[in-house]
């Protein structure tokens, strides 16, 4: 099952795209596992995900910590801490 991966703000800029549709490999149990796997996709991904402490995530539009279980999501978003308002 393909998963839509979304990136925002400087994560998006470092990776060079705001979205990619990927077939996730078996064995990714947490959101952090997904981030570590994505980091191997390109130098841009590696730079964006170099410091997981600076990352936040949402699974199927629910905000979760990086140690949350990944499950079988339709959509995962990875982004910096929010700065609206």
């Amino acid at each position: 099952m393909a998963t839509e991966i979304l990136y925002f703000a400087w994560v998006r800029e470092k990776i060079g795209t705001g979205a990619e549709t990927l077939d996730l490999p078996a064995g990714l149990t947490s959101v952090g596992d997904l981030v570590a796997w994505l980091a191997g996709r390109s130098p841009g991904h590696a730079e964006a995900f170099a410091d997981p402490a600076r990352l936040r995530a949402a699974v199927d539009q629910t905000f979760v910590p990086l140690d949350a279980p990944l499950g079988r999501p339709r959509e995962v978003a990875i982004f910096p801490p929010v700065t609206g308002g």
């Binding site: 700065t83 609206g84 308002g85």
Partner: peptide, 26 residues
């Protein structure tokens, strides 16, 4: 509402100054 919006709603600010751009840090 404004206090919680700032930490819970997914917005990101980028500043433009002197022709350069930088993302605002939380």
């Amino acid at each position: 509402l404004i206090d919680r919006l700032k930490t819970e709603a997914p917005f990101w600010k980028k500043e433009t100054l002197a022709g350069t751009e930088r993302w605002v840090e939380p």
